[in-house]
Amino acid sequence: MSDQQLPNGRATAEMVAARAKVSRVAVSRAFNPGASLKPEKRELILRIAQELNYTPDRAARALVSGRSHLIGVIVPDVCSHWESQEIDALTTALQAEGFATLLFKTRTDYSMDEKLLAYMRGFNPDSVIAFVENVKPATLVRFLDRAVPIYVHYPHPDEVPPAAEPLYDRLNVLQRNGIEQAVALLQGYGAQRIAYVSGLDKSRANTAREKMLRSVMAARDLPPPIVVAGDFSYDMAYAATLDLFRLHGGADAIFAANDVGAFGVLDALRHELGLRVPEDVKVVGFDDIAQSHWKSYNLTTVKFDLDERVRALVRLILRRLSDPGMPALEETLNTRLVVRSTVG
């Protein structure tokens, strides 16, 4: 039967094998970059497959290999600047390794509907990356079969190791170096009264960031930061800055929980309060998103290197899949201060 005679008009691996005069196994190997096959034979098979418009049946291959080549990603937000840039970079890196991405979004309180977790399980992902620690490992692993989840974690030196938990892998992001560099720079310019415009209360990243800032300031004999409530957004940081100066006596310097919040701080200082940055008030952000170097902001910020983060996450996935029985895996990244014109 020719491909024109097939009921669904779809070519099969057997048809490719017959045209290329190779075995069915060779066709399968040609679509597996890690499989052993002579380059000229792989090139022939792929060319004929393209002529016949043949693509492997992923579901059938998953049944044989036990691998779906799908990676679940759980995020709190998909449109904020940091998350959108990270999702874009991560998806690109995963596709280069032969994976497709399944994106799942939490509720606004960072929890996740268990019906959605059950739906995710139906895809049998090879791995799941949870950017939100509020979806606990104990909860997540109940909805996974063989996949070991990966969590992004912001450890503190005083942190007490958790009690026995289900197996999960971890990307540790160490915030101390970057925050310490920022506080030292501010202190060197004479800042004593430092404020922190926070992120969402339910964000563990925000909690860890504030705790580390307090720890670093205490170690340098500075008074605790003045904490004003934010939610990682431009508008909330703008309003919080006005409250800080009109109701709470202002500050010499302001840390914002993220760069977008820092943009709100800068615009409130300059356009509403008539203050100069950095002469009157110094401003530091977190993340170093792509917009931070724009000349309107030119923001001094604690940098989380996006490319390093993505490479570390992909390494965790590949290491786990190469040996599923390994104990918990970890990768560790550091932070550093990027100095621009908002401090100086």
Rank of each mutant, 00 (worst) to 15 (best):
R220H: 10
L174E: 12
G261S: 07
E330Y: 09
I194M: 06
E40I: 05
D126K: 12
L275M: 13
A253Y: 04
T332K: 14
M120V: 12
E114S: 12
F31V: 05
S68P: 10
G274D: 07
D288Y: 09
K38M: 07
F263G: 01
E165K: 13
V338W: 02
Q85A: 14
V260Y: 01
M212F: 04
I74L: 15
K105E: 11
V343H: 02
E97V: 00
T342G: 05
R246K: 10
L222P: 00
K136M: 15
Y154N: 08
G250I: 12
F143H: 07
T241S: 15
R276V: 08
L200K: 12
K202D: 09
M326Q: 09
V64Q: 12
A17L: 15
A18W: 00
D267W: 05
L94I: 03
F232Q: 09
T335Y: 11
T92K: 07
H248T: 00
D305A: 14
A229C: 15
D126Q: 12
L63Q: 01
L299A: 04
L321E: 15
D169A: 03
F304I: 13
D169C: 07
R42T: 08
V64K: 11
G98W: 05
E86W: 14
N53F: 00
S322Y: 13
L247D: 13
G344M: 05
F99L: 07
V128D: 05
S127R: 10
I317N: 05
A262I: 06
I48P: 02
P224Y: 02
S23L: 08
L333D: 07
L316G: 00
P157L: 04
E43G: 01
L44F: 01
S233K: 08
P166S: 03
A262T: 01
R311F: 02
P225N: 04
S292L: 04
I45Q: 12
V284C: 11
V277H: 04
F131R: 14
Y110N: 15
P324H: 11
A49P: 03
A195F: 03
V197R: 03
R47Y: 14
A100M: 15
H81C: 07
G285W: 02
P161W: 09
A218H: 08
R315H: 13
E308V: 00
G66K: 13
R309I: 06
R246P: 00
R336L: 05
Q192A: 10
E133P: 02
E180T: 14
L222S: 00
A130L: 04
Y189L: 13
E272N: 12
T241R: 14
A253T: 01
T108W: 10
T207V: 12
L316R: 00
E114M: 06
M15K: 09
S28T: 10
R176L: 07
Q187P: 02
F143G: 04
A240I: 04
P76Q: 14
Q95D: 06
V135A: 02
S65Y: 04
A18N: 09
L321K: 08
V216I: 12
P324M: 14
V78W: 08
H81F: 06
E330I: 06
D126R: 13
H69I: 07
R340T: 02
N298D: 10
H69W: 10
R24I: 11
L103R: 03
F31C: 05
S233E: 07
A312D: 06
A268D: 08
P125D: 08
N298L: 03
Q181E: 10
N206S: 10
H248R: 15
